[in-house]
Write a protein that binds this DNA or RNA. Structure first.
Lengths: 236, 236
DNA sequence: CTAGAATTGTGTCAAAAACACACGTTCTTG
DNA sequence: CAAGAACGTGTGTTTTTGACACAATTCTAG
């Protein structure tokens, strides 16, 4: 213990950026704070790192407390550590981002935390440096989703190709050609036909697919230029 | 201040993974520790975060102290925070990686820290979780270098196309076709001819180029499938 | 001082991938 | 049951990739 005696110990926080997709637009799960500091303002869900707790574990705990979900896609984004980012006391924040199937959420838990799903288009200003965190997270999501098929994490287990396309269009804020999109996705061999059809569709009912998990895992290691046309839209 | 009173403050360390290239193989700048703990063993260069110091700033300071270099490519890699990663006391480590032109180093500073350049092939076992950090860093380097032209950061300001190719071969541990490599690099418009020739070459002297910085910056935002054939070699 | 080895620069061609666009089908609504 | 909307599959052209050939430069060995 004596060896590190003279160094400063610092508060370590975690913040979670939780992405969801409702079929139309990309959403964030945000909290309207009913606690200090910054009472009444919007922020990301966060908390402090506990003794005896791994970083990854802490991020999972925070995510679970808010959404009732475990085993979601959860990835460390970046650590933010400018000196005055938290005006109360110097705190560095290890930020994770998560992709969630919005249908699986625990509504009660979310309400208890005074949280709601907000469209990225109508995102309010957040406290501290949380806006910057969201910017970086969105950039990362765009970057990764063009190279790895992580988009599926935002969809229900059964989905149609047009739904998947709408998701990508929401992530990148762009329009894609239906026919080329379909061809490319099919070429990846990532979709397994269920034989069922989408009963919710208002017009023609599309075919429902599930994800081919074995193939999915292969695409997560290494990368694959999923959607080349999105390259310029992905921040570096 | 009172608001965060009950939370634990933790030691925050920084570790730097410093990559260099000597024309033949990819190297790491490692330290043979002549201080406690783990006296006599190999480790990454590191230090603690000071009060009043940004994370980025601290990483730059550590890099500068060791190499005498500033303004290198320096990117946050990941934060490592399992509970017992440092046996002395709980410490989380924010890890940065840096790309350095090996010729610019401050030899005296490096010797003073008992550091040396070690080929990745002959890397010794490092203390704590530093081996894991290096693994992740190499993965990241491979990932990024296939999509962004960051390889140039490891070369002198004037270089030949074959030198650049040797660098990529060292990063990915593979052989590339000289003719296709050249064609692709030239197509990026990233190289500016200097008119000079490489006087060090033993056989035919290659043309020396410099980096087109404007174009380089464009390639850092967004991405570009620099070397498609390396996709599978890049960890996700 | 010349032949040969090593390395560098430029070119060609076939295969594959990307992109733009067309047509037929299914389902709901009025 | 006709019209509109969304879904599914196909086709041709252009661009990019990957495999490979040949010529030019420079040092060295005999």
């Amino acid at each position: 213990m004596a060896v590190y005696q003279h160094n400063t110990r610092i508060l370590v926080a975690l913040d979670c950026i939780i992405f969801g997709f409702d079929g139309e637009s990309l959403k964030l799960l945000l909290i309207k704070r009913n606690f200090e500091p910054e009472y009444g303002k919007w922020s990301l869900m966060g908390g402090f790192l506990n003794e005896g707790e791994d970083l990854e574990e802490a991020a999972g705990r925070i995510l679970y407390n808010l959404t009732g979900l475990r085993n979601n896609y959860l990835e460390q984004l970046q650590t933010f550590g400018t000196v005055y980012r938290d005006p109360v006391e110097r705190t560095i924040s290890v930020v994770y981002y998560s992709l969630v199937n919005i249908a699986d959420q625990d509504v009660a838990a979310i309400q208890a935390h005074n949280a709601s799903w907000i469209s990225l288009d109508s995102k309010p200003t957040l406290i501290f440096d949380h806006d910057q965190m969201v910017t970086v997270a969105l950039q990362r999501l765009r970057y990764k989703a063009a190279l790895h098929p992580i988009g599926f994490e935002l969809l229900p287990s059964k989905f149609t190709v047009p739904q998947l396309q709408k998701l990508y269009e929401a992530i990148y804020g762009t329009q894609l050609d239906r026919r080329n999109f379909s061809r490319k996705i099919m070429a990846t061999d990532l979709l397994l036909s269920t034989g069922e059809k989408d009963t919710n569709s208002v017009t023609k009912k599309g075919q429902l697919y599930t994800l081919n998990s074995d193939r999915y895992r292969k695409y997560l290691d290494g990368y694959y230029t999923f959607l080349p046309e999105l390259a310029e839209l992905s921040g570096g």
